[in-house]
C-alpha cells in the first residue's frame, strides 16, 4: 500500500501515544513526519469522506500539507510546459487560463470532480495519490505525458504518471514518499483534448465510465493520439490500440468509432453498484468515440465548452 494513498490504513512507526496531527510549512518537515508513520492529508475530500462512509478509519497520525507554500500553485515552465503543485485545487485547475486553452481535458476533468465544495479544497495530488480507477484527472494527465515528482528523505525521483499506478488504490510510491508536483510537457501545435465521463446526474457524480483523448492534427490528419480509459480497469490506463486506430486518420466518425471499439476491447469492467460490466464495456466505446470527436473539434479550433461531460451527452 502506497504512502500516497491517503485513505490507506497502514500504520507507520509513529511512537507518540494517541493520535497526532501536525501541519508543517516545509516539505522537509512533511517528509520527516511521513518517515515516522504519519499519513498525508491535503483537502481531506477522500480521506474524511471515506472514513465517514466506514471504508477506512482516519489514520492515527496525520500530517497536513496545506500550509506548505512550495506545494502550491500552477506555473508555466521554460520549455512551454506546466508545473502543478500537489496542492493545486481542482477549482484552481478548472479556472486556469493556460490549462483551459492548452490542456483542456484536464480542465474538463477538474471542473467535474465531486461538488463545488470538493473542488475548492480537493487537490490534484490527492486525486492522483488516492489512485482511484475512477479518478477524473488521471486520464488527462497520462495523455498529456505527465510526470510526477516524489520526494522522501532519500531524495527525489521523477516518474511518468502511467508508471505510478499499480492497482485500485495502490501506487508504486514508497510509504514515505510525498508527491510534490506534477509536470506537463508542452503539447504540439494543433493539439486538442477532451475528457468526459458517463454520469447519471449533473452534479455530485463519480465516473461510471470515463475517457480521455488528446490528438494532434497536422494538415488535416492525426499525427499523434493518446487515449485513456477511466473506471474501466483496475487503474486508469492508456489504450495504445485506440491511439493506433486514430493516427493517420482525419479524426472522422469512423476513426473515432474504431478508437471506441478498441477502448471497449481493452476494458476490464466490473459489475458494481454503479453499473453492470456489459453496460460499462459498451459505454467505453460510446464515451471514447465522443471524446475523440470533441478533441478533434477542439484541435480544429472549434468550441466544445468546458466541462465536456455536460456539453457532450448531458447536453441540453
Amino acid at each position: 500500500m502506497s504512502a500516497l494513498a491517503s485513505g490507506s490504513t497502514a500504520m507507520g512507526q509513529a511512537t507518540a501515544a494517541g493520535p497526532s496531527y501536525t501541519a508543517p510549512t516545509t516539505v522537509d518537515d512533511v517528509i520527516a513526519a511521513m518517515a515516522t508513520g504519519s499519513r498525508v492529508v491535503a483537502g481531506g475530500t477522500d480521506l474524511v469522506v471515506g472514513s465517514r462512509q466506514g471504508r477506512w478509519p482516519v489514520p492515527e497520525h496525520l500530517v497536513a500539507i496545506h500550509r506548505v507554500n512550495s506545494l502550491r500553485g500552477i506555473r508555466p515552465v521554460v520549455d512551454g510546459g506546466l508545473w502543478l503543485g500537489a496542492t493545486a485545487t481542482h477549482g484552481e485547475i478548472a479556472e486556469d487560463a493556460t490549462i483551459r486553452e492548452r490542456y483542456t481535458a484536464l480542465a474538463d476533468a477538474s471542473s467535474i470532480v465531486g461538488s463545488r465544495a470538493t473542488r475548492n479544497v480537493g487537490t490534484l495530488g490527492g486525486n492522483i495519490a488516492n489512485a482511484s480507477p475512477a479518478a477524473e484527472t488521471s486520464g488527462p494527465l497520462m495523455c498529456f505525458g505527465a510526470t510526477c515528482m516524489l520526494e522522501s528523505r532519500n531524495g527525489r525521483r521523477e516518474l511518468p504518471l502511467d508508471e505510478l499506478f499499480s492497482g485500485p488504490g495502490r501506487t508504486v510510491a514508497a510509504m514515505d514518499e510525498l508527491l510534490v508536483s506534477v509536470s506537463l510537457p508542452a503539447q504540439p501545435a494543433g493539439t486538442g483534448s477532451c475528457y468526459a465521463r458517463l454520469e447519471y446526474r449533473r452534479q455530485m457524480e463519480i465516473a461510471v465510465v470515463g475517457a480521455t483523448a488528446v490528438v494532434t492534427l497536422d494538415g488535416g490528419q492525426i499525427t499523434a493520439a493518446r487515449v485513456a480509459i477511466t473506471s474501466l480497469a483496475p487503474t486508469v490506463r492508456r489504450v495504445p490500440e485506440a491511439e493506433a486506430a486514430l493516427i493517420g486518420s482525419t479524426g472522422d466518425r469512423a476513426a473515432a468509432e474504431r478508437a471506441g471499439e478498441a477502448a471497449a476491447a481493452a476494458s476490464l469492467p466490473i459489475d458494481d453498484v454503479r453499473a453492470a460490466a456489459d453496460y460499462r464495456r459498451a459505454m467505453a466505446a460510446v464515451i471514447t468515440r465522443r471524446v475523440v470527436q470533441a478533441a478533434v473539434d477542439r484541435a480544429r479550433g472549434e468550441t466544445v465548452s468546458i466541462p465536456a461531460s455536460a456539453s457532450l451527452h448531458g447536453a441540453l
Partner: peptide, 15 residues
Amino acid sequence: RNAHLLDYKLQTMAD
C-alpha cells in the same frame, strides 16, 4: 450496497 449519497443518487438542483 448503496447506503450513501454518492451511490444513492438523489436528484441535485442541477437536475
